[in-house]
Simulated scan of single mutants.
Amino acid sequence: MKASVMESYGGPEVLRCQDVPDPRPRSGWSLVAVKAAALNWHDVLVRRGGYRSPLPHIPGADGAGVDRATGEAVMVLPSLWWGRDDSAPGPDWEILGDSRPGTYAELVAVPTECLVPVPSGLTWAQAAALPLVGVTVYRALFTRGRLRAGESLLVLGAGGGVATMAVSLAAAVGARVWVTSSSKAKIDKARELGAGGGVLYGDPGWPEAVRELAGGFDIVLDSVGLWAESLRVLRPGGRLVVLGASAAETAELRIRPYYFGQYDLLGTTMGSERDLAGLLALLERHRVPPVVVDRVFPLAEARTAHEHLEGGSGFGKTILEP
Rank of each mutant, 00 (worst) to 15 (best):
L299T: 01
W178L: 01
L156N: 10
K189E: 05
R287F: 10
G196Y: 15
G278H: 09
K184W: 14
A251E: 02
R256A: 14
P204G: 08
R139I: 11
G157E: 01
G97R: 06
M270C: 14
T103S: 04
I319C: 11
V241C: 03
L226D: 09
P78N: 07
P12K: 05
L45R: 00
K317N: 01
V118E: 02
S168P: 10
P91R: 09
E273F: 11
L276V: 13
V66P: 10
L77N: 12
W41R: 08
A171Q: 06
A64R: 06
T143V: 08
S182Q: 09
T318L: 14
G157L: 02
R256T: 12
M1E: 07
I319P: 02
R285C: 09
G197V: 09
G194S: 07
A281E: 03
S87M: 12
A127E: 01
P111W: 04
A302P: 07
A214I: 14
G197M: 08
G63Q: 01
G312M: 09
D43H: 05
G121R: 15
D43R: 07
G196V: 12
V173R: 02
V288P: 11
T164Y: 01
Y263R: 10
V74Q: 10
G83K: 05
V233E: 06
V241Y: 00
A128N: 04
R211I: 10
G278S: 03
K186G: 00
P101I: 10
G261Q: 06
L283K: 11
R256C: 06
T304W: 14
W124C: 05
A64S: 07
V118Y: 07
A175T: 10
S183G: 11
L153S: 04
V173A: 10
G145Q: 12
L231K: 03
H57V: 12
D19T: 14
R26I: 05
A245E: 09
F315P: 07
A247D: 15
G225D: 00
A125T: 11
E321Y: 09
V293G: 03
A140I: 15
A109D: 01
V116H: 06
P298R: 07
I187H: 08
D43Q: 10
G196R: 06
R239N: 05
G49D: 08
V66Y: 04
G238T: 08
K2Q: 08
G174T: 05
I219T: 13
L39K: 12
E301V: 07
P101M: 13
R26D: 00
H42M: 09
L15R: 04
E94G: 15
G267P: 03
V44P: 12
E106H: 11
L193F: 03
S223I: 15
V162Y: 02
A190F: 10
K184I: 10
N40Y: 01
A245G: 12
P25F: 02
A36I: 08
V66S: 05
E113A: 13
K186D: 00
L234W: 06
G311M: 11
V162P: 10
A163N: 09
R100F: 13
L200N: 12
R285K: 11
A140W: 03
P89E: 01
R256K: 15
S152K: 02
G160A: 03
L96Y: 00
C17G: 13
K186Q: 00
H306I: 03
A105C: 13
R148W: 15
